[in-house]
Design a protein around this nucleic acid. Structure first.
Lengths: 325, 325
DNA sequence: CCTCTGTGTGTAACCGGTTACAGATAAAGT
DNA sequence: ACTTTATCTGTAACCGGTTACACACAGAGG
């Protein structure tokens, strides 16, 4: 490994001088700078981030904690975060929590141990003490909180919008799929939908589910039509479940949207490829990731007037699983 | 920040002793150990990885470089890698290369600067000089190479299998969708399919595409049926494109699999949720990730007899877009 | 009683950067 | 001519761990 000392020797100067040209601070003579630059490229030197991080007590790393990158909603977030951060010179330490406190704590712990300069997390456990003790910039993503800056889309509003849409489009026996109880945004959208449905003059029933996984989605869909075979409007807990329900409805020979309308949530990329294409409530996931990253960077740089929380718009995307009028 | 010195002071011992109990090496008296343990939990101390990493010249970080986490094939890989690595105490530094050399080099660079102990990469540019100069354990994932250990599935065989399947199931005017030219595995499976099709007594045509993206998949599907409207068997470049083709076929009122059979590649989770469910060539992505991680760990630990390369089996998954007999 | 060995602990160097501080030189101001 | 100031550079301390080495002591073996 070639170190700053090697460069210093090669250039015939002290390490301090090399450091100064590297960081472009302090005075350095023009020809000295040149010699140093030459030595650097001669030796193909690149500074050791770890040493820098140790002295400065901060790295250029940022911790990103997501529930499960395998759920297609999260890669969008992750990508947004990464694109924004990498452009600003930060790198990503990634962890999947599986909504499991233990794993979450472990990751937060190692984020700290690695001197990250900030953390972006989609957690349901912000109130846990490790977060309180944290004196690092923290931004919540896809989650809201009183106590921390956050970037999220209004789940309640999204839930209302989904329900309202189905009601307006003439669904009369609506089934509302309730997502996993331990996931906050799932509950928000559920509450929003309940709210709207209660207000309207429709019958509705609720199907409780406990996961968003692909493997189980099929099962929820079957259960849905087994239990509520005459439903004519389904509000899915997310697009994965929505797509599974579309699939199951087709399988059972139901006409979409004539016999049953279905509305998803998230607008993951594959929703526009299902058959029929899935109407859904869109969350701008990629943008949310970017915004969270921007917010975090501003917080790290202590820029004044940082918005403490950014609420992103949800939006109805009308495709083929809802009626036209 | 509480450091090892604070612990030493609290316990009334030297930092060396604290370090010894932390790492469980060297001699430490039973009661001294106890005092140190108490001081550690009293102060809620956790050691600074950066300092450790600097002295030891190795961290517990591993760099993972993927083309694009937004493509549903890669999260599976990533998850496999992560599950295996995190269990072994390693953490992940993640980068998306977008198959772009520039980004790739940047990430490799920062991996090195951060003292990673190993790198897992899905690159098409192994032969680039930065990899040669690397004296770090490196494992290729989803890519093969003469020069580095690798974990991949046999694309050529997969391509053959896809073609063979369609031929056997009676497709007579096959269309082969060729994936992006710069992506090695896409070309392997294409070659395999070509090989098999050439051997068989069928007509076939080729549609060239330049991306795997969701946004464009729809376009390829339309182009496919515009150009080859009478095709009765499609070998898609991957499942994303496959699902788009299924969708477009349905849209155009074609019966699947009677009028047109379609076979995908990868077996991403959503393939079993399309309508009809997509027959495909499965790559065991999650397992590939795990194997790559295991291989890397063994290499890092210098365990003897590490298999230099692991070829994972591809497998036909028969679902509803191919005929039964 | 003396040596040898195993155990327990502390001191200080070291990892590769950054920066406070001091010293040198030259140009500018009085 | 003398002070002041700006520019340039080097020395060494420091970040928070790890570990080589030295030293002390106790019990075993002769």
């Amino acid at each position: 490994m070639v170190t700053i000392k090697d460069v210093a020797r090669e250039a015939g100067v002290s390490v301090a001088t090399v450091s100064r040209v590297l960081n472009d601070n302090g005075y350095v003579g023009a020809d000295t700078r040149k010699k140093v630059m030459e030595a650097i490229s001669e030796l193909n030197y690149s500074p050791n981030e770890v040493a820098r991080s140790l002295y400065k007590r901060e790295s250029r790393l940022i911790g990103l904690l997501l529930p499960d990158i395998t759920n297609p909603f999260f890669p969008q977030l992750a990508r947004g975060v990464e694109d924004e951060l990498s452009q600003a010179g930060y790198r990503l330490l990634l962890g999947n929590s599986d909504e499991n406190i233990q794993k979450e704590l472990e990751y937060i712990q190692t984020f700290i141990q690695n001197n990250v300069v900030g953390i972006i997390t989609a957690t349901n456990h912000v109130d846990y003490k490790i977060y309180e003790a944290l004196d690092l910039p923290l931004v919540l993503l896809d989650r809201a909180s009183e106590n921390y800056p956050a970037v999220y889309a209004d789940g309640r509003e999204g839930g209302r919008l989904a329900a309202k849409t189905l009601v307006e489009k003439g669904a009369e026996r609506i089934t509302l799929v309730k997502g996993p109880a331990n996931i906050k945004p799932a509950q928000d959208r559920f509450q929003g939908a309940i709210e709207e449905l209660s207000r309207a003059d429709v019958d509705f029933s609720v199907l409780s589910t406990t996961s968003y996984s692909f493997e189980e989605a099929q099962g929820w869909a079957e259960e849905l039509f087994d239990k509520f075979s005459d439903t004519d409007g389904v509000i899915a807990s997310n697009d994965i479940v929505g797509i599974a329900i579309v699939h199951e409805a087709m399988e059972r020979g139901k006409r979409i949207p004539e016999d049953v309308q279905i509305i998803g949530y998230d607008d993951i990329p594959q929703s526009r490829l299902s058959y029929p294409t899935l109407s859904t409530i869109r969350q701008p996931a990629y943008e949310m990731g970017r915004e969270a990253a921007k917010l975090l960077i501003r917080t790290i740089k202590k820029e004044p007037g940082v918005e403490q929380t950014i609420q992103m718009p949800v939006e109805l995307v009308e495709r083929k699983t809802t009626r036209k009028e």
